[in-house]
């Protein structure tokens, strides 16, 4: 197995553990924004989609790349915007609320 793959596996496993540690600390109140925020992060496939647009002399690949860019951008733009919109709704108790 080439070194690059081994390194990628190492990175994947360590990142998974970081993910487990961080996400168990997210309170249940924020689980929906966590999911929509995860949607946004999984939009990182946009990187692969951008690279794929560079494939020349293959119409099918260009079609795939176009749809992949569009789908990934839906996740990136939609994911971050809707998460921000939701998080903006979470407020602390107002001062004027009675004791």
């Amino acid at each position: 197995m080439p070194a690059a793959v081994v390194i990628a596996i190492v990175v994947f496993v360590l990142a998974s553990f970081v993910g487990f540690e961080l996400i168990t600390k997210v309170p249940p109140t924020l689980h929906t924004p966590l999911m929509s925020g995860s949607n946004a992060v999984s939009g990182i496939t946009i990187v692969g989609a951008i690279v794929a647009t560079g494939i020349e002399n293959n119409t099918m690949a260009a079609v795939f790349a176009f749809v992949a860019v569009a789908a990934a951008m839906i996740n990136v733009v939609g994911g971050y915007l809707v998460t921000d919109r939701m998080l903006g709704m979470f407020r602390r108790p107002k001062r004027e609320d009675p004791k």
Partner: peptide, 10 residues
């Protein structure tokens, strides 16, 4: 790889 692992864990 890292972003995917984070989302996968979540």
């Amino acid at each position: 790889v890292i972003a995917g692992a984070l989302v996968g864990a979540s």
